[in-house]
């Protein structure tokens, strides 16, 4: 564990807290992509259910895995049951088939071993890299977003962004290098760059998130 990874994980926790805060205080899921949330639930299920076959590294690791699986299912429940009337499926139209299909193909090409757990892990890594796209698509389509939603997306982007200095640190300090996680993580961070540009130039200067 190093400071970048810890801050990254903290940022991930903050993002989920922001999302839950937005939904429970406004009693709505307006502007939130159910598809992105469903993809994250799938990402966590395919990566963290390694708990079931004994992949227990530390209390920290186990507690985080359980939290991410549990909170993602709770978020899906909130969107589908109590806040269902506030969702507009007509703007959440990104084609999931491309993302899931692409991640599946990548997991068969890039994995460390042709075994079910390794392919599942690789699938979760590639899927996570693109899971935010339906959410960014909604923001792009509507041309604006509530501030709290943009804070949520920013915290989520910061999470994988912070993993990059973590990988650099681990490469030099520990000789650890995980090329699949690194390449997918860089792709994931690049996907956020446009968003971050507007977030830093507008939202953090007190303006509303609006596309030009």
């Amino acid at each position: 564990m190093n400071i970048f990874r810890f801050l990254g994980d903290l940022s991930h926790l903050v993002s989920i807290w922001l999302l839950l805060h937005k939904m429970t205080t406004s009693k709505s899921c307006t502007g939130i992509s159910f598809k992105t949330q469903a993809l994250y639930a799938l990402v966590f299920a395919t990566r963290y259910l390694d708990l079931l076959y004994g992949s227990w590294h530390s209390m920290y690791n186990v507690a985080m895995k359980i939290f991410f699986i549990g909170s993602s299912l709770y978020i899906l429940y909130l969107i589908k049951v109590p806040f269902k009337p506030t969702r507009d499926p007509a703007i959440d139209t990104f084609k999931l088939e491309y993302l899931v299909g692409g991640a599946l193909i990548m997991s068969l090409i890039a994995n460390y071993e042709y075994s079910f757990p390794e392919i599942l892990w690789s699938f979760s890594i590639w899927l996570e890299a693109v899971a935010i796209l339906p959410q960014l698509f909604i923001i792009q389509r509507t041309g604006e977003a509530e501030n709290i939603t943009t804070h949520y997306v920013a915290a989520l982007g910061a999470y994988r962004g912070l993993y990059i200095p973590n990988w650099l640190y681990r490469y030099f300090a520990e000789g650890f290098f995980d090329p699949i996680a690194v390449i997918a993580g860089i792709i994931q961070t690049v996907i956020y760059l446009d968003f971050f540009y507007i977030y830093f130039t507008k939202v953090l200067k007190g303006q509303k998130f609006e596309l030009p």
């Binding site: 990874r5 994980d9 991930h12 390694d50 992949s55 590294h57 530390s58 690791n61 985080m64 895995k65 991410f68 460390y112 071993e113 390794e118 892990w121 993993y163 973590n166 000789g175 650890f176 290098f177 995980d178 090329p179 699949i180 996680a181």
Partner: peptide, 10 residues
């Protein structure tokens, strides 16, 4: 790949 089987990252 060193230790990539040990997936301790989240």
């Amino acid at each position: 790949y060193p230790d990539t089987q040990v997936k301790d990252e989240l």
